[in-house]
Design a protein around this nucleic acid. Structure first.
Lengths: 160, 160, 160, 160
DNA sequence: AATGAATGAGGCTTCATTCAT
DNA sequence: GATGAATGAAGCCTCATTCAT
C-alpha cells in the first residue's frame, strides 16, 4: 500500500513488529498517524508564513515554506504527494486533510479578495503543485541549488 | 508496485492472466509499455501545443494541453504522477523519460531565451506541476468546471 | 516434471511448441518416446556386450558397455537415472522397462548359474549402479581419465 | 525443482505455508537445510562404520551402513541420489557435500593404501553407487528381503 | 502438417495481521 | 507493555495444454 512493509518500518524504528500493532490498530492507522504529524508541521509552517501577509506577499512566503517542507521532510512529502494522486486510498481522510491544509492559506486569501471558492482552490492547487513539484525536481535533479535560488525560480514561473 | 494487481489488469482487459505474461516479460515490462504509450501521447500533444509558439504563448498552450491530457487519460496521468514522486522505481527509466518529455517544451524555450538550464528545468517543473495538480484538483473536486475555466485559473495563478 | 520445459525442448529442437503436441499426446508421451529410444540403444549395446559371454567375462563387458552409454548419451542417462530414483513418476512404465533392460543381461546370467531370482536382480542392480555412478563421477569430476581406466577402476571395485 | 510443492511440504508438516518462509529464505534454503541434516546422519553412520576398520572390512561395514541409511531415510536418500544426477542444481553446494561425505571413508582408505586419488574416488563411487542402487532396488522390488540378505548380495557383487 | 498466441491451474513468495508468551 | 513466531490471503510468475489459423 505504501510499498514500505511493516517489517521495514519496525526495523528502521528499532522496535519489534508486534509493537506496532500494540500501538496502532493497523497499518492504515500507523500511516494516518504519520500523516497527521506531517500535517501538523505543515499547519505550523503555513501559519507562520501566512500570518499578517496577503496577496503576492503571502504567496511568496507560502512557496518558501513549502520548499522548506520538501527539503526537511522529503520522505513524508514524497509519500503524501504520491498518495494524493492515487485512486484507492485507505486513509483518504488524512490525505484530504493534508490537501485542505496545504491549500487553505492561499485559497482563503483569494476568497477574501473576492474570488469564487472553486476558482480559488484551483489557483491555490496550481501554486502548491508548482512548489512541491519544483521542490522535488530540486532535490532529485539539482540538489546543488540553494533554497533561495529555487524559491526565486518558482516565483518567476508564477509571474508570467 | 502499482497497487493494481495483474489479476485486476487481466480481468479489466478481458484477457487471461497468462496472456499478459505471453506478451510482456513481467509486470514491470507491462507498466513500462503502458508508460511508453502514455509518453507518446504526451509527446504528440506537447509538440502540437508548442509548435510555432514561444514565451507566454507557448506556456499557455502547454498548460491547456496538459489539462487535456489529465482530462482524457486521467488514469495513466495519475499513475505517472504518483510514480514520479516515489522513491523506489523498478521502471525508473520510463518515469524519467516521461518527466523529460513533460518539461522539454517549456525548459527548451526558457533556455533559448537565455536562461540557465537548471533554472529552466525548475521553472518548467513548476509550470507542469501547477497544471497537473490543478488538473487533478479539477477532476476530483470540481468536475463541473469546464476545461477553459480551469485553464484560465491556472494561467491566472501563473501571472502574479 | 523433468525440470525441462516444453518451450526449452521445442527451442532446442528448432521447432514450434505446438508441433510437439501435434506429434505427441502430452509431455509424458514425449518423454516416454525419448526414454524408449534410450532403451533401444541400451538393448542393442547390452546385447552386443552379452552375446556369447557368461560369468565374469559378461560382467566386465556389460560394465564397459554401460560406461560407453554414459559417455555417449550423458544427458539421457542422467535423466533416466535421476528419474529411476524419483517417487512420483508419470511415465513409470518406461522407467521400469529401462531398469529391466539394464538388469537383464547380468540377472539372467546369475539365474542361469543357479541364483535365486531376487538375489540375482539385487546383485545385477549393484553392478549396474556401480557402473552408472562411477560413470557420472568420471564425467563430472575426472573427465581426463580414459574409458579404459574407468572401466578398470570399476572392475577393481567389483573384485574385492 | 524437487517436484514436491511448498504446499505439500507445509501440509505434511502440519504447518502453514507462510511459516516455512518465516524459517527459511526460500524453497532452495529449505531443501539445503534438509540435505544438511541428511548429510549429518550420513557422517555419523559412516564414521561409526569406518572407525577402526580398513580394507575389505571397512568396505563391508560401509555397505551395510549405506543400506541402513536407505532403509531408514528412504525419502531423503531418494531425493539426494536423484538430485546427484541432475544437471541444474540450485543447491549444488549441499549435493557436492553429500557426495564428498559418502565417498570419503572408502576413498581415503584406498588412498592410504597407495591408490591414486582419482582412481580411489572412482572406485569409491562404484561401491557407493552399488550400495544405494541395490538398496533402492531392495525397497521398491524386494521389500521382503532382510537387511542382511541384501548386504550379502551387494558384497557378493563386489567380490567377483 | 505445423504454428504460436492464448489460457488457467498451480507454484513460489510477500506481507499485514494475530496471539501465546 | 512488548515481542516475534506463526499464519493465510493475495500477489507475481511458469508452464503444460489447447485451438484457430
Amino acid at each position: 500500500m505504501t510499498s514500505t512493509s511493516i517489517d521495514d518500518i519496525a526495523a528502521s524504528a528499532g522496535i519489534a513488529k508486534g509493537s506496532i500493532y500494540y500501538n496502532f490498530d493497523s497499518k492504515a492507522g500507523l500511516v494516518e498517524a504519520i500523516m497527521a504529524r506531517s500535517r501538523e508541521q505543515l499547519v505550523t509552517r503555513l501559519a507562520e508564513a501566512s500570518d499578517g501577509r496577503t496577496g503576492a506577499d503571502r504567496q511568496a512566503s507560502v512557496v518558501r515554506a513549502l520548499l522548506a517542507m520538501v527539503a526537511e521532510h522529503t520522505a513524508s512529502v514524497r509519500v503524501m504527494v504520491s498518495e494524493l494522486f492515487r485512486e484507492e486510498r485507505s486513509w483518504a481522510e488524512s490525505i484530504k486533510a493534508w490537501r485542505d491544509t496545504a491549500l487553505a492559506p492561499l485559497a482563503d486569501d483569494l476568497v477574501a479578495s473576492g474570488a469564487d471558492p472553486a476558482e480559488a482552490s484551483l489557483r491555490a492547487a496550481a501554486v502548491v503543485g508548482a512548489s512541491l513539484t519544483a521542490g522535488l525536481e530540486w532535490l532529485v535533479f539539482h540538489p546543488e541549488r540553494t533554497h533561495a535560488e529555487v524559491a526565486s525560480a518558482v516565483l518567476a514561473a508564477l509571474s508570467r
